[in-house]
Structures are given as structure tokens and as C-alpha cells.
Design a protein around this nucleic acid. Sequence first.
DNA 1: AGTGGGATCTGT
DNA 2: CAGATCCCACTA
Length: 219
Amino acid sequence: MGIASPTFPPQTPIDPIWLDRPVTAVAPDLIGCHLVRQWPDGRILRSCIVETEAYGPGDPACHGYRRRTARNGSMFEGAGRAYVYQIYGLYHCLNIVTGQAGVASAVLIRAVMLEREPEDWPDRRPPRKSKPDPLHRLGAGPGKLCQVLAIDRRLDGTQLEPGQALHLERRSPEFEAGLGTGSIALVQTTRIGLSQGQDLPWRWYWAGAQSVSKIDRRA
DNA sequence: AGTGGGATCTGT
DNA sequence: CAGATCCCACTA
């Protein structure tokens, strides 16, 4: 299969029970799963998750570390929702809420590989950018993937189920097989861009995937 | 009521 | 490495 044009056959939808586990277990398990964006007119765009970070209890970098607030509310709503927040005034970040209601824990989606370019992407491309990204870089970064998938705070709190704007699908059998044989490997390392909790090794990515947000200098 | 910093990204 | 750009959580 050509890396530049992988196919994305639909897979089994993920239900909330599967996400109701420790966030550090869910985060690596989400690598290889599909993030599915669906619009009101029925258009669907699949992507493959290639990089995640876990944020959870006892973690000073977690937005819910201190208390529930207006911004982080959906982090406390329990497994199976989206938590979307705005950052640096310009960008948005998408999280998959895990665990029980009342406890703040979520997986930040840091990078995805898109099945194709969205139809309206050429019109929505950031003006500041001179050279357009190739397909495999369009979802390479938490802010970038929200931009290309048109994800903003209006999707905060979305229930992740088929028919909604966002939902998840399980790994393909091919991906699972690749993990089994070792032809696909996950790397675990420390998280990016933090001022607290830098030492927790709660970032995972698909080794060698072209869409990871940054080349890892430690690994 | 005011303000500082943030789970980012880009071109220099 | 600075700049874009805005909301919110915290302080007073």
C-alpha cells in the first residue's frame, strides 16, 4: 500500500465503555484508530490518529487539575465526549474525554493522517501560509488538524457517536496485525509544549508516520 | 475590573 | 525567535 494514498475503509465505531479506562491506557490505544468528521450535509472525512497525549488526575498540566471551570467542563462529563478548547487566540485543540464523570481526564489528539483533502480546504487555508502543505502534513499538529477538519469550540462537548460531527472507529485489522508482527511500532515519550509535568512520558506516536507533529529528539 | 499566560504555528 | 490574537482563570 502506498504511504501517500492509504485507504480508509469504515471500521467498527468505538463506544464510550472502551474509553472508560485510565487515560494512559486509552491514549496509546487510540493510535491507529479513525477520527471521523461528519458535516450536517452528510459529507464524511476519515483520518487515522498517529499521535496522542494523555492528561489526567495528579497531572499539573491537565486543564482539570485544579477544578471544574467554564472552559474545561466537558473534561468532567465522562468518557465518550469531545473536549475542544481554544489556544493562543488562534487555534483549537481536540481531546477525547476518558474515564468517569466527575474526574478530569482526556487524550489530546496531536496528529492525524487524512484520507484526503476536504472539499473546501483550498478556500479555508490560512492566509499567512505561502506554500500549501502536502496531504500528509495537513493534520500534523493539534492546531493544524482542528483547522483542516473545521473543529472549533462549537464542537466542545460533542458525544462521539456515528451521525455526530465527530466520532471514532477501531483500528483496522491490518493495523492490529502490523502491531503484532512488529512492522508497526509505537513510541512513548514526553509531552510537548508544557511548563509543568514535562517529565511524565505520556505522549505516544506511530513510529515513522509522516504526519507526527514533530521529529522526536529524545525517543 | 484588570491582566498574564497558554496542550500552537509560521516565516525570519 | 518573535508575532499573531483571544479567552479565561486568577488576583485584587
